[in-house]
Computed example of a mutant assay.
Amino acid sequence: QGYQLQVPLPGVSGTVSGPGQYIRAIFTYGLSIVGIAALWAIVIGGFKYLRSGGSETRKTSGKEWIWGAVIGLVLMLCSWLILNTINPKLTSLSEPGLMAITLEPHRGLSYNEGTKTYDVKTWNDVKSLASYSNNDITAAVKAAAAAYPNVPEDMIWAVMGQESGKVGVSAVSPKGAQGLMQLMPGTARSLGVTDPFDPGQNVMAGTKYLSMNYQQFGNWTDTLGAYNAGPDRIRQYGSGANIPFKKTQDYIANIKGIVPQYF
């Protein structure tokens, strides 16, 4: 596939492969013009020098033409050498290659509760719950939901997907939150966690924290806002929906998109 030129250039056919080839042709054409102009300047300077007839003014004028042309050619050559030394592609004007990007298909996770099967689908593949097929994690979720009945299993999975994504048990946030449900070290210690990367301890403590917030605020918008930004933010702004942080609003919206039945 090429581009048809509306304004042809010498030495270039009517079609070019892309903008890079067209710019390269202009660059080459420009260098040719500069070279020809410099050659003519040398010829004119030499002619003036030879025709000076002993006049110092004409000799000086001829020399200036010659030296000006030579200096221009030297500067052009030095510029080319510098660019070519830094990066040869700067002088070849080749188009940059683009790395191909392959998107993985959307994935989710199914898990069973008796005869009922939940399909937990994430909002994008990066936050896929596919890595949570580990039996230890499934058992941890079931145990936590049994210990804190006001926190449904699918809510735990949804929070886990938002918090840890595909990283799983080893997830650590830039702020230091650890494990599947991303407990901050201080929160983890206050909830009795000794190993934040143990799925059983982490999920149980994270679910307990969800349960405590749900008991206090009575709805999942405020509960999730408290889990993400802290209970003090709910008291400060009156509701999780009023917290003016995009990260928290996205957090609530993403989980709501997975388990809308609780909102």
Score class of each variant (00 low, 15 high):
E95L: 09
V167E: 15
F263A: 10
V12C: 14
V7D: 06
R51W: 15
A145H: 01
A143C: 08
G218W: 03
I137R: 04
Y22P: 09
E56F: 09
Y111C: 07
M204A: 12
S32Y: 11
M160C: 02
P185H: 00
G2S: 09
F245E: 11
Y111H: 09
A38S: 07
S110I: 13
A171L: 00
W40E: 14
P105T: 11
N213L: 10
I156Y: 03
Q216N: 12
S32G: 15
S61L: 11
G257N: 11
M99R: 13
K246G: 03
E163Y: 04
G218F: 03
I86E: 03
A171P: 00
V120W: 06
F27T: 12
Y148R: 07
N87E: 08
N254W: 05
G97Q: 12
F263W: 15
T115Q: 15
G62P: 03
D125M: 13
K89H: 08
G165Q: 00
G165M: 00
Q216T: 12
C78R: 08
P199V: 05
T122C: 12
A253N: 11
L98Y: 12
G179L: 01
S13F: 09
G240T: 07
V141T: 04
A69I: 04
D136N: 11
M204N: 14
A144N: 01
T248C: 06
L77V: 15
A38F: 00
Y251A: 06
W157G: 11
V16L: 01
I258N: 02
W123I: 13
A229R: 08
T207N: 05
S239V: 03
W67H: 15
G192P: 02
S239A: 00
S55K: 06
I255L: 08
G18V: 09
A143R: 13
G165R: 01
S110N: 15
S239M: 01
Y22N: 12
T194A: 03
I44S: 07
S173M: 04
T221L: 07
G114R: 06
A140R: 09
G165P: 00
S190P: 02
Q249D: 05
G179V: 05
Y118M: 09
Q201I: 02
V126S: 13
P152C: 08
F197N: 07
L5V: 03
L98H: 12
K121E: 14
L39V: 08
G165W: 00
G53I: 04
W65Y: 15
L109C: 07
P174Q: 07
V167A: 13
K175V: 05
G46M: 06
M181K: 08
S170V: 10
D119K: 11
Q216A: 15
V167G: 10
L191W: 00
A38Q: 01
T85M: 14
L81M: 11
I255E: 09
Q4E: 13
L90G: 04
S173P: 04
K127D: 15
G238F: 00
D195E: 09
Q261P: 04
I42M: 11
M76R: 12
G35W: 10
V126F: 11
W67A: 14
T194C: 02
V141Q: 03
G240M: 06
Q215R: 10
A171S: 04
W80C: 09
G238M: 01
G53Y: 01
L129P: 09
Q4L: 15
P96C: 01
I252P: 03
